[in-house]
Design a protein around this nucleic acid. Structure first.
Lengths: 253, 253
DNA sequence: GCCCTTGAATAAGTCAGATCTTTCGGCCTA
DNA sequence: TAGGCCGAAAGATCTGACTTATTCAAGGGC
């Protein structure tokens, strides 16, 4: 008879993704990933497969599949005659969405937020600039419409709706840039923004200035004025960055 | 007795990583990854495990481990009672170094080069700007030194050495920005630059202008002048971008 | 005739244990 | 002391059985 997993040995909380979804693989992966990101498994530590089989009460197959995935994320390295070596943070694939989720759920949350926000700050203005020469009239019109809806949601103080529209707006700008890596990046950012909302780390009283700037970006793109779109987006990013900076200073400063 | 893998069924060339390294897992992974990136396995196609077991003449374990990794990269999705579903390019983790390597080795090479170059163009100026306020005097001095060596390598027309120094220069600027995601990004770029050199896609006669701009960045950082560093880096990127644009226009235009 | 329930078939998921291969460390010889 | 041999350790791979979820279609109820 098979012993069911009890999942309580290490004192680590699994990531935010709901109520322990189906699949042994996913559960073990999530648990180990969280442990590595959270520093409960320090770099240089050595595990071995049998130990993990015992700890999680699952078969070798499951453990090995998990280890292969962790290895592809740069979390571990396996060596014959040695075991499973935990690798340092510099080796992690910090762009992997899963890794970002784990880091956001760990003590390094603020560092992750800062990194991604800086990345956005660098990317989005350039994306807006690129989009100006690649966007179709329809897409541009849609953007103007979304900016208008954001204004309405701001007036109505409908936070959830505003968040959705905000994410949609930025997603479309990045999509219009015609660079698939930028689009992928937006998925990460969306996760961060949603997470921020979820963790109530976001007072976010959408102010007039931000609303105006989004409209400005949309209009500039409609007029195919890349430079103007870029400047407006820079201002949006500066504002978002300041907002976040004040936040993490009061949390971790 | 176990039948050794012959590895010749599908007409796909494995990625650039040398002479078929050790490990069944790595070989099958590389082969399937290349096939997906190269479009030999179209989105929506369905495979099943037993078929793969036969095709590669390896055990279920190996195949399953490979599939888990591919799934974590967004290449596939497995469904009970259905099989292994190939996912469309939009789902891929385009920031995964391994994925980038496969894409560079596939027909989508030029698209990948363009995406990464655009990404760089967006990131590096911002990184230079950030670095100005975070770099240490020693690191700044080192940068000045490297810029000088680049100049020497350019004079001597030593291409390989110039490439190494160029990569090192940008790596250090990104490292000095204090953002671990930027550093990781540089690893991708380094791979691209090296690949470009490897594929002889890079005439790269390092001109005076580029050399001067690198020195300019280094000096600006030493003087902690973020805006000046940013502007110089923008020019470097514009030049690199033009260089690449002319290249892919003659190749795929 | 249409919709819902039910059951069988299918393919992935999981398990258990055996065997192979590589590598490390100690020991032996020159 | 240096270099090579041998055995143990731990991952890598193989095998085949069993479990579980999903889908599709047949059959019954409305």
């Amino acid at each position: 008879m098979i012993q069911r997993v009890d999942q309580s040995s290490p004192g680590v909380a699994p990531a935010q993704s709901g109520p322990t979804e189906a699949g042994l693989h996913a559960r073990v992966l999530d648990h180990l990933g969280t442990a590595v990101c959270g520093g409960d498994l320090a770099a240089g530590s050595v595990l071995n497969i049998d130990e993990l089989v015992d700890r999680y009460a699952v078969s070798r197959s499951v453990i090995r599949e998990v280890l292969r995935v962790l290895a592809s994320m740069g979390f571990i390295e396996t060596r014959r005659r040695v075991g499973v070596l935990i690798r340092p943070a510099e080796a992690w694939n910090v762009f992997d969405p899963q890794v970002i989720r784990w880091r956001l759920a760990s003590a390094g949350r603020m560092a992750q937020l800062r990194s991604i926000t800086e990345l956005r700050t660098a990317i989005e203005p350039h994306a807006a600039w690129l989009a100006a020469s690649r966007i179709s009239p329809d897409e541009a019109s849609d953007l103007v419409g979304i900016a208008a809806k954001m204004w309405a949601a701001g007036e109505a103080a409908d936070e959830a709706r505003f968040l959705r529209l905000d994410i949609e707006f930025h997603r479309r700008v990045l999509a219009a840039s015609g660079n698939e890596m930028f689009v992928k990046l937006q998925e990460l950012v969306a996760e961060v923004l949603t997470g921020r909302h979820h963790y109530h780390l976001m007072p976010h009283h959408p102010d007039q200035q931000a609303l105006h700037l989004h409209a400005e970006v949309a209009q500039a793109l409609q007029h195919r004025d890349g430079e103007r779109a870029r400047r407006a987006m820079v201002q949006i990013m500066e504002q978002a960055f300041d907002e976040m900076k004040s936040m993490w200073e009061q949390t971790a400063g």
